[in-house]
Computed example of a mutant assay.
Amino acid sequence: MDKQTIGAIEAFVQAKLQEDKSGHGMDHIERVVRNAQKIAQTEVCDEFVVAAAAYLHDVADEKLVEDQGRAYQEIVDVLQKNNVSAKKIEHILYIIKNLSFSQELEGTTKELSIEGQIVQDADRLDAMGAIGIIRTIYYGGHKGNKIYDPTIKPRLLQNKSEYREESTIINHFYEKILLLNDRLNTPYAKTIGKQRQEFLENFLTEFLEEWE
Rank of each mutant, 00 (worst) to 15 (best):
W211T: 15
L156G: 04
I6W: 01
K3N: 08
E19H: 07
Q18A: 14
Q103S: 06
V13M: 06
T5F: 00
E47W: 00
P150W: 01
K194E: 15
S100E: 14
N185P: 01
K143Q: 15
E90Y: 00
N202C: 06
G144M: 08
R135Y: 04
I134A: 15
L99D: 07
T108N: 10
Q117S: 13
I75S: 09
Q117W: 02
L180Q: 11
A53W: 00
A52F: 00
E212L: 07
G23F: 02
A51S: 13
Y174H: 09
E10M: 04
D121H: 04
E201K: 08
A86K: 01
P187A: 12
I177F: 00
T136A: 13
L56A: 13
N145G: 05
P154M: 05
L178A: 13
D61Y: 03
I75Y: 02
D126V: 04
N83L: 07
G132A: 07
V32K: 03
A54P: 05
K176I: 15
S161V: 14
D67V: 08
L125Y: 04
A53S: 15
I6D: 01
K3R: 09
H28E: 13
E106R: 01
L99K: 01
E90S: 08
Q4S: 06
E66R: 00
I39N: 10
T168G: 15
Q14M: 09
L179C: 12
N202H: 05
A51I: 02
D121Q: 05
L200P: 01
A52H: 02
G69P: 05
T186F: 01
I131L: 09
K38I: 13
G193N: 09
A127P: 00
A122D: 11
F199N: 13
A8K: 08
A54E: 07
K160E: 15
K21M: 13
V78N: 05
D126M: 04
S102F: 00
M128E: 14
S85E: 09
S161E: 15
F173M: 12
D20S: 08
K88S: 14
G25V: 08
G144P: 09
N185V: 09
L208R: 07
I6M: 05
E66K: 04
G107P: 09
V13W: 01
E210C: 09
E62W: 02
R31Y: 02
E62G: 11
I95R: 01
S102D: 14
Q73C: 09
V119T: 10
L125R: 02
T42D: 10
